[in-house]
Design a protein around this nucleic acid. Sequence first.
DNA 1: TCTATTAAGGATATGAAATATCCCTATTCT
DNA 2: AGAATAGGGATATTTCATATCCTTAATAGA
Lengths: 162, 162
Amino acid sequence: MILKSQVEWALHCCAILAGLPEGRYLSTKALAEFHGLPKEYLSKALQSLSQAGLVDTTLGPSGGYRLARPPAELTFLDIVEAVEGKARTFVCNNIRENNPCRPQGYCESGPCPVARIMWEADEAWREKLRAVRLSDLTEALALDIPADLWKSSFEWVLERAG
Amino acid sequence: MILKSQVEWALHCCAILAGLPEGRYLSTKALAEFHGLPKEYLSKALQSLSQAGLVDTTLGPSGGYRLARPPAELTFLDIVEAVEGKARTFVCNNIRENNPCRPQGYCESGPCPVARIMWEADEAWREKLRAVRLSDLTEALALDIPADLWKSSFEWVLERAG
DNA sequence: TCTATTAAGGATATGAAATATCCCTATTCT
DNA sequence: AGAATAGGGATATTTCATATCCTTAATAGA
Ligand code: SF4
Ligand code: SF4
């Protein structure tokens, strides 16, 4: 069970978009080039972000993506769920229905304890992601990345932002 | 990102094994029949439990599986990790290496904040599963399942336990 | 108005992983 | 001796992630 790599891509792209000046857009092409990713495929991840309403887009030359909300109002969970989906990681195949001792017409009363416990763990994962804002990430990155690399990356992006 | 169905199978099988009297074994055949699962494929899940040391096995007629430890000493995490593996759900593709502004020979100092945050969420999921014992499940199941179905299932199993 | 550039999305190919079946071997019980 | 069992290798099938290509509509700028 592994998250799609698009999740990582989307998180990195949002981190870049968070540093964009007000009103500017950054294109798929620039984001793909910056991260060394296949442009067409990365585009699918960005479309997911767009469909989830996390980013705004505009067409034409100097078009691209920008965050739809301030970084403090975007959580990791928003981004992860946008590309990975909101489905639970534990799906119930209702194998108790096959119990040979089960009386005919016996009807299950909702999910069994196994499913409930697995879903609680799932929720704990989501809760942790919900607690981290995109602004928390950019702050952590600023501490993590050497100042000169941070600065030159910022300039590289600005040159290409429409 | 969805857990394999073998996870559900393994959890249900362990719940059955937890009700087995001391020293008795239950075969793959019986477990597969009880849950309506493909015997050969379920066998792979049980082998994973065996390799992880969660169950003991014995060969020959009246052979099969039994828990290697009391249900209070087996956690959900033990079982889930046995069949799903211990790998983290977020894998890092190191896309920051492709940053065009990155100075030559610049060497990363471990995982970046993105990975750290995702891994923390992963750990929260594991922590939740680690906190639930197999004995907690059987207690919950006893409350959840109608008494007569519980009893007849127990008898069905006992008839087939070697 | 014309042209270049862009996001959106449909179609399709490729690869890897989950799912499933089959068969052989060694062991153990009766 | 014979039957039943776990273990495990080989392989087929299906599903999903990954990746590419192409068309359309919108937009900016010349
Ligand atoms: S997990 Fe629970 S609800 Fe799902 S099949 Fe098993 S018993 Fe039924
Ligand atoms: S998640 Fe962090 S460590 Fe992994 S590639 Fe992205 S920047 Fe690098």
